Measured scan of single mutants.
Amino acid sequence: DWREIAKLAEEALKKQQPVTVNGQTFNDPNEIKKLLETAQKAI
């Protein structure tokens, strides 16, 4: 669910920690931002 992904990505950016989505881990803040943008577009 994109809403859940957006929430996870936002928290990861705030806490500056990696986030795992669908078994894929994102460590890079730039990648997390991209993930968040993608999720927000999909909602």
Score class of each variant (00 low, 15 high):
D1S: 15
D1W: 15
D1T: 14
D1N: 14
D1F: 15
D1A: 10
D1E: 08
D1Y: 15
W2K: 02
W2E: 02
W2D: 03
W2S: 03
W2H: 04
W2R: 02
W2L: 04
W2C: 05
W2M: 04
R3W: 15
R3E: 13
R3V: 14
R3K: 14
R3P: 12
R3N: 12
R3Q: 13
R3A: 12
R3I: 14
R3L: 13
R3M: 13
R3D: 09
R3Y: 15
R3T: 14
E4Y: 11
E4Q: 11
E4D: 10
E4L: 14
E4I: 10
E4G: 06
E4F: 09
E4T: 12
E4R: 09
I5F: 04
I5V: 07
I5W: 05
I5Q: 02
I5M: 05
I5Y: 03
I5A: 03
I5G: 00
I5R: 02
I5P: 01
I5H: 01
I5L: 07
I5D: 00
A6T: 06
A6Y: 15
A6W: 12
A6G: 04
A6I: 13
A6P: 00
A6E: 08
A6L: 15
K7I: 12
K7R: 15
K7W: 13
K7N: 09
K7L: 11
K7M: 14
K7C: 08
K7H: 10
K7Q: 12
L8E: 05
L8F: 04
L8Y: 04
L8A: 12
L8K: 10
L8P: 00
L8T: 05
L8C: 05
L8I: 11
L8G: 03
L8S: 05
L8D: 04
L8R: 09
A9C: 11
A9W: 04
A9M: 09
A9S: 04
A9Y: 07
A9P: 00
A9R: 00
A9V: 10
A9N: 00
A9T: 05
A9K: 00
E10K: 09
E10S: 09
E10F: 10
E10A: 09
E10R: 12
E10C: 15
E10I: 13
E10L: 15
E10W: 10
E10G: 06
E11L: 07
E11A: 09
E11T: 07
E11G: 05
E11K: 06
E11M: 07
E11W: 07
E11P: 00
A12S: 05
A12K: 01
A12L: 02
A12C: 03
A12Y: 02
A12M: 03
A12D: 00
A12V: 00
A12F: 02
A12R: 00
A12N: 02
L13F: 04
L13M: 07
L13N: 02
L13P: 00
L13Y: 04
L13A: 02
L13W: 03
L13T: 02
K14T: 12
K14L: 15
K14R: 13
K14C: 10
K14H: 13
K14I: 13
K14M: 14
K14A: 14
K14V: 13
K14Q: 12
K14W: 09
K14D: 08
K14P: 01
K14S: 10
K15R: 13
K15M: 12
K15P: 01
K15F: 13
Q16K: 13
Q16H: 14
Q16V: 08
Q16W: 08
Q16E: 11
Q16D: 11
Q16A: 12
Q17W: 12
Q17C: 04
Q17K: 10
Q17P: 05
Q17L: 12
Q17R: 11
Q17T: 13
Q17N: 07
Q17M: 13
Q17A: 09
Q17E: 09
P18F: 06
P18G: 12
P18S: 08
P18V: 06
P18M: 07
P18C: 07
P18N: 06
P18I: 06
P18Y: 04
P18D: 06
V19A: 05
V19G: 01
V19Y: 04
V19S: 02
V19L: 15
V19K: 00
V19T: 03
V19N: 00
V19W: 02
V19M: 15
V19I: 14
V19R: 00
V19E: 00
T20S: 10
T20W: 07
T20N: 07
T20C: 07
T20F: 10
T20Y: 10
T20R: 08
T20V: 12
T20Q: 08
T20G: 02
T20L: 07
T20M: 08
V21K: 02
V21P: 01
V21I: 15
V21H: 05
V21D: 00
V21G: 01
V21W: 10
V21M: 06
V21C: 04
N22T: 03
N22F: 15
N22Y: 06
N22Q: 08
N22P: 02
N22S: 07
N22H: 09
N22I: 04
N22R: 11
N22C: 12
N22W: 13
G23Q: 04
G23D: 05
G23E: 03
G23A: 04
G23R: 04
G23H: 05
G23M: 04
G23K: 03
G23T: 03
Q24E: 10
Q24D: 04
Q24M: 15
Q24H: 12
Q24T: 11
T25R: 06
T25P: 04
T25K: 08
T25S: 06
T25L: 10
T25Q: 08
F26G: 00
F26N: 00
F26Y: 14
F26P: 00
F26Q: 02
F26A: 00
F26L: 09
N27K: 14
N27S: 15
N27H: 11
N27D: 11
N27Y: 15
N27I: 12
N27E: 08
N27F: 14
N27G: 05
N27V: 15
N27W: 15
N27P: 03
D28Q: 06
D28S: 10
D28T: 15
D28W: 15
D28I: 03
D28C: 09
D28Y: 15
D28R: 03
D28V: 03
D28H: 09
P29G: 05
P29E: 10
P29K: 09
P29N: 06
P29V: 12
P29L: 12
P29S: 07
P29T: 09
P29Q: 10
P29D: 04
N30W: 15
N30Q: 14
N30G: 12
N30I: 13
N30K: 14
N30C: 10
N30P: 06
N30D: 11
N30E: 15
N30H: 14
E31L: 08
E31W: 08
E31C: 06
E31P: 00
E31H: 05
E31R: 03
E31A: 09
I32S: 00
I32Q: 02
I32E: 01
I32V: 07
I32P: 00
I32L: 07
I32W: 03
I32F: 01
I32C: 02
I32N: 01
K33G: 07
K33E: 10
K33L: 14
K33Y: 08
K33P: 00
K33Q: 14
K33H: 09
K33T: 09
K34I: 12
K34Q: 12
K34V: 12
K34E: 11
K34S: 11
K34N: 10
K34G: 06
K34Y: 07
K34W: 09
K34P: 00
L35P: 00
L35T: 01
L35A: 02
L35F: 03
L35D: 01
L35W: 04
L35H: 01
L35E: 01
L35Q: 01
L35I: 09
L35K: 00
L36V: 04
L36H: 03
L36A: 03
L36T: 01
E37D: 11
E37H: 06
E37T: 07
E37Q: 05
E37R: 07
E37A: 08
E37V: 06
E37F: 05
E37W: 06
E37C: 05
E37S: 06
T38M: 15
T38K: 12
T38A: 08
T38C: 11
T38W: 14
T38H: 12
A39P: 01
A39I: 09
A39F: 03
A39M: 05
A39N: 01
A39R: 01
A39D: 02
A39K: 02
A39S: 04
A39L: 06
Q40R: 15
Q40Y: 15
Q40E: 09
Q40F: 05
Q40W: 11
Q40K: 15
Q40N: 14
Q40P: 02
Q40L: 15
Q40V: 13
K41T: 11
K41E: 10
K41D: 07
K41S: 11
K41V: 10
K41M: 11
K41R: 12
K41W: 05
K41Y: 06
A42L: 13
A42F: 13
A42T: 06
A42P: 03
A42G: 06
A42Q: 13
A42R: 10
A42M: 15
I43T: 05
I43P: 04
I43C: 05
I43W: 03
I43M: 10
I43Q: 06
I43L: 10
I43G: 05
I43F: 03
I43H: 04
